[in-house]
Design a protein around this nucleic acid. Structure first.
Lengths: 218, 218
DNA sequence: TGCCAGTAGTCACATGGTGACATTAGGTTG
DNA sequence: CAACCTAATGTCACCATGTGACTACTGGCA
């Protein structure tokens, strides 16, 4: 199916038509219904049909909005974060050390607006609590880990599976997870979480040279 | 279904009857067929029916041996490792520091026999390569992580979700993963892997006091 | 031999997920 | 407004993973 340029322009020029609004409504209804039902009866005890019924759409429609039942939870958040980090890493200057590049890139991800930040975090917190969907939750970190390792490997000329890329990526991911631990505390702010992440990342990354040969930096 | 003591004794006393042999054969056939087919056409392109057919049993029988398709891969290995580590942790003296206890417990897990060790590792290596089943692979580490965090939290009187338990567990898991990086190298031995794990764990654990308050040890 | 218990096969069904096609509703142009 | 195009949705059919219930077989043993 070929998209005529004019048509693409047209739809792009009208981003808030009734159609778009309805779509957003449907998506929001599905998401809300899913989260409510998950909380009420648990993830496994909620079928896609239940969710679709609650949102008053067909099951098939559910799958047009979310590629899988798991997908409702992180939605595209996971994908967004991974993409964002990927772009941030790619934008780092080539002469920067991997440690510094990863540190800076992770900063530029969660700088964003406060509301979105809390939303992502809240979602992750829900997921974290329900053990049956840990796999999906873990995959987010796995993807992040993998991407960081790819990046570091590319910088040091090693494969991503090599020790140093894996360790640096692991340290970065662990620092990110550490920040999540502080979410429970009511006085947590994006700033305090970032500060904790920095502290963790710096301390652990500083230990790496004692484990394996870290590639020389210019 | 109540198990009469005598019956349990009898089956325990006859561990290698024809029946037992047949069971082992069926299980081995299923496992071999599955691994071969996964390698040939990929995990997603292999149905349980294919596996069952290749092993010449009914699909239902497959599920009597393996609770899920994923389960064929790690089999009970994951479960075994987690259980083994749990017992090892429980057996550590109460006055030992969490850092030392976790270190020692991880040692006592892979001490085992060489063949089993390589088998576990080889399996994990296969799984690691196929991206479509990363979730299951990640779950192993997640379970390990969770258990270690529970243990540390119990020792320090914090919840498992607190910062220190999570960090120490993360460090231990990361050290374990680091050892897996060395598997590609042909001259890797259980000893060299353990040595690497020690080096990683010690270096990273030493950094923890710089991140958060580590509970005082007697 | 004949009984008992464990094991496998068969059937039915719930659930997640996808493809194909018809139908409806939003939006555009004359 | 009518005619029309296209995106969104519904409907139906289908495949795959699992599970429960019941039946049939088979090894072990008195």
């Amino acid at each position: 199916m070929v998209t005529v340029p004019e048509a693409a322009e047209r739809t792009a020029r009208q981003p808030d038509s009734r159609r778009e609004r309805k779509k957003r409504e449907t998506r929001a209804a599905l998401e809300a219904a899913a989260l409510r039902l998950f909380a009420e009866r648990g993830y496994d005890n909620t079928t896609v049909e239940d969710i679709a019924d609650a949102a008053d759409v067909a099951v098939r429609t559910f799958f047009r909005y979310f590629s899988s039942k798991r997908h409702v939870l992180f939605g595209d958040l996971a994908h967004m974060i991974v993409d964002q980090l990927r772009r941030a890493l790619a934008a780092r200057p080539a002469d920067e050390s991997p440690v510094a590049a990863v540190r800076a890139a992770m900063d530029s991800v969660d700088v964003d607006d406060y509301g979105k930040y809390r939303q992502i975090m809240a979602r992750m917190q829900i997921v974290q609590k329900l053990p049956e969907l840990s796999p999906g939750y873990q995959m987010v970190f796995h993807d992040l880990n993998h991407m960081i390792a790819e990046f570091v490997g590319a910088r040091t000329g090693e494969p991503a599976e090599a020790l140093y890329p894996q360790l640096l990526a692991g340290v970065a991911t662990l620092a990110g997870k550490a920040a999540l631990c502080e979410l429970d505390k009511p006085d947590a702010t994006p700033q305090s979480l970032r500060e904790l992440r920095h502290r963790t990342y710096d301390a652990l990354a500083a230990a790496l040279p004692r484990i394996c040969h870290t590639p020389a930096q210019p």
